[in-house]
């Protein structure tokens, strides 16, 4: 049929448009710096409270992403949360006395793990490698505890202030 070439042209154009849209989505829209899990080593850390931390949350050093949380479980003996993290192989010079804390990005954003580099004294510290455990951890700040501290802490202060005023008045009389 003579019209087949005309159809083929338009269908080819249509497919090309689809591929272009896919490329657009891939490059401009999605996070192309996808984390390649193959070139990473795994470490674990125990926290008291992980707050709202989720699997796939980033591990950041100074704000730069160097790894991702791969697993969150409860230790069967101590019932404390154990977080497994995969770190990019390129960052293999992290001392094992570094500390981990769970921070929130922005005011109400998602939570991530921040790593503060420890001190490398060249003798007793080792670098983190596959299977290492980080001991120095700070738990997540739970909003309710914070507010509770704020409220009850204030009430204590005002009680003291009232008591002080009363005693001062009593003294002055």
């Amino acid at each position: 049929m003579r019209q087949t070439t005309k159809y083929e042209f338009w269908v080819g154009l249509f497919l090309l448009l689809g591929i272009a849209a896919l490329v657009f989505l891939g490059l401009k829209v999605a996070n192309v710096q996808g984390f390649n899990e193959a070139k990473s080593y795994h470490i674990s850390a125990t926290f008291d409270n992980i707050g709202g931390l989720k699997v796939r949350a980033p591990l950041k050093v100074g704000g730069v992403v160097i790894g991702r949380v791969t697993d969150i479980e409860l230790d069967p003996k101590t019932y404390l949360p154990v977080v497994k993290i995969a770190i990019n192989q390129a960052y293999h010079d992290i001392p094992d006395n570094s500390s981990l804390s769970i921070k929130t990005s922005g005011l109400l954003g998602e939570q991530y793990v921040a790593l503060s580099l420890g001190f490398d004294d060249g003798e007793t510290t080792e670098m983190l490698k596959d299977g290492s455990k980080i001991i120095d951890t700070k738990s997540a700040i739970v909003l309710e505890d914070l507010i509770g501290q704020f409220l009850y802490g204030d009430k204590n202060k005002s009680e003291h202030a009232d008591a002080g005023k009363e005693s001062a008045e009593a003294d002055s009389q």
């Binding site: 989505l25 891939g26 401009k28 829209v29 999605a30 996070n31 192309v32 996808g34």
Partner: peptide
């Protein structure tokens, strides 16, 4: 606009 979008859209999960 574009960088926040890129940060939050993941290839395997969303697209």
């Amino acid at each position: 606009f574009w960088s926040v979008m890129q940060n939050s859209v993941s290839w395997s999960y969303d697209i």
